[in-house]
Nucleic acid binder design. Structure first.
Lengths: 122, 122
DNA sequence: TAACTGTACTGTTCGTTATAGTACGGTTAT
DNA sequence: ATAACCGTACTATAACGAACAGTACAGTTA
């Protein structure tokens, strides 16, 4: 489900970009799946159509979706490359976060415990 | 050294807050150490004194520094509690980052490798 | 043809950040 | 005491990005 949080400091259009890309990479949105129209999604989320348009345009630039004028916006058929890019991006963010945590006094042991907690220990 | 990156999306006063708190918690600034005056630091970094003042005010609110009107701003003598708070904060940020990484397709194995890389394997 | 769709504009509002300038009282060394 | 610092508190303004409002036009489809 596509959602936005008005209280979040992150701009709405960026939330939409990350949200949809995460859904696409996670398989919750299938290749060639028809996304809500600009006006429909704007109505559902009670935000301006221009904001949706801005997010869709950036997602197309990133190759996550493609648009057929007059028809709509669709999830890109080749999710593989997108998933790889997402993985690289998240890896770099994680690296930065780990470095900050280390500088902030978080021990390797605690970080390891956290990692096990997130990934489960089955 | 206190620095500022004008190209960063993060506001200058927030950079200063994080920067100084990191230096304090990391022991690079000693308890009761005299910080640069508002006007002096503003001149050094070529930014407005009001921006420094805003950062100092927030740091005092957080208990990282204390101010003596007419004398200056000083690092708080009890860094212990501040370090603990910093550790908690960084732990939560790391947790969120790990969760995002997992959702983004980063494997536990890769995350573990990254962790070892950051903390060193001696 | 009517009702959708994406797209492209212009213009406006709003909040945050940062700046500029001024002012006042406390501290310190000369 | 007086000058030169210091923190602090204002007001006003400029700049920027985000979001909104409104309009318009061309492609698609039932």
């Amino acid at each position: 489900m596509i959602t936005v949080d008005m209280r979040d400091r992150k701009p709405i259009y960026e939330q939409l970009i990350d949200n949809i890309r995460t859904l696409a990479v996670g398989g919750h949105l299938s290749p060639d799946e028809h996304l809500p129209s600009v006006r429909q999604l704007a109505a559902e989320l009670a935000i301006n159509p221009n904001t949706i348009q801005k997010a869709y345009a950036e997602l197309e630039r990133q190759g996550v979706i493609y648009s057929l004028p007059g028809r709509g916006n669709f999830i890109s058929p080749d999710i593989g490359a997108i998933a790889a890019a997402e993985r690289r991006k998240q890896t770099e963010l994680l690296r930065a976060s780990m470095q900050a945590a280390k500088n902030g006094g978080v021990t390797e042991k605690d970080a390891l415990t956290l990692l096990r907690e997130i990934y489960g220990d089955e």
